[in-house]
Design a protein around this nucleic acid. Structure first.
Lengths: 195, 195
DNA sequence: CCTACCGATCGGTAGG
DNA sequence: CCTACCGATCGGTAGG
């Protein structure tokens, strides 16, 4: 294990950056090679195909979110603490690996069909767990009665803009963004009859 | 003016659908022609280039949002009424023209650079007006003190998921979605000291 | 990791 | 709106 980035690491990083800038389909293997500083065909010494780049980026991100949620759920915390930790998980991912997360959310539709099924299964499982958390909060009287499917979509969507913010403006008011989102979400969800 | 769709209308509709399904870059002129039912080169009897399809779709949508907001602001309503009408405007657009709105939000980065500047200016103006509305609410004591830039991004983002919902599931629980979003946003924003 | 190369597909034009 | 066609670029391979 060396500390410096291997050429393969650089390859994946530059690919992710280009996928964000131009989209997967409009990114050419030649373009990636140019960024890495090698000849186009040399790409194939590291990977089998262009698709492999997209698959790894998307699946790594998907597992990051699914595993991260798993760890948080194990703690068995009160609903709003769970939700706040999920917000932290999400925003930290965006700040630490903005290109990876953006490719994950914006380019997954270009995944080859075999992998696409697996991807959508992971994504659906993640959404179902969000819904279960909301339902638990509703049952416990902490969250007002809402349609958990609509609300899960809304909450996930609510955090999405942070991607473009970090990418475009390089401003990292991370803690401010986190607390602002947490307050907005808590106030939007909570049952006022409760303390 | 005929009531039936002209071939050019069908061309733009099928193009928009394909841009949503595969993205602009991965959509070929040949693919569009096949959907319309003509030969690839016949496309060029109606338009000058593939880019024109994207430009019209994106700019029409941008003007729809900008003009719609203009009409709402003219009414000079209380802040939360203004915000609720903007939610209606946004959700109605998604329900009535889901493909157009999705191309507008997801594919604008492929606009040719001359048009891109104009597009971003419109988009920025729209965002600035959202911020002005929020500031007005804060000044009037109706909205709690928030960073208007962060909050404007959040609100716009919050409505985004509805696009994929309408596209993928063909379920149109429009009124339910609208009122759910309005409540979530109002509760997330409002200053509780007020009535 | 490079040189040399290939078949496929792309957006678009000429001319009718 | 079609037939016929073009130069450019694509992802990827062979062989070293």
């Amino acid at each position: 294990m060396t500390k410096s980035k291997s050429r393969k690491d650089v390859l994946f990083e530059e690919a992710a950056k280009l996928f964000v800038e131009k989209g997967y389909a409009a990114t050419s293997v030649r373009g990636i090679a140019e960024r890495v500083g090698i000849e186009p065909s040399s790409i194939y010494s590291h990977i089998k195909s262009k698709e492999v780049l997209l698959v790894k980026i998307c699946m790594d991100a998907a597992h990051y979110f699914v595993d991260g949620m798993e760890d948080i759920l194990k703690k068995q915390l009160p609903v709003f603490d769970t939700i706040e930790m999920l917000v932290d998980l999400h925003i930290d991912a965006i700040v630490e690996a903005p290109t990876t997360v953006t490719v994950f959310t914006d380019e997954w539709k270009h995944l080859p069909s075999e992998v696409l099924n697996e991807f959508l299964t992971l994504r659906n499982g993640y959404e179902l767990k969000w819904r279960a958390i909301l339902q638990q909060g509703i049952d416990g009287g902490k969250i007002r009665k809402v349609d958990t499917q609509l609300m899960a979509h809304t909450l996930l969507s609510t955090m999405r803009w942070v991607q473009t913010w970090v990418n475009d403006e390089k401003v990292k008011r991370t803690e401010e963004i986190k607390s602002m989102l947490k307050t907005f979400i808590r106030k939007g969800l909570e049952e006022l009859d409760n303390g």
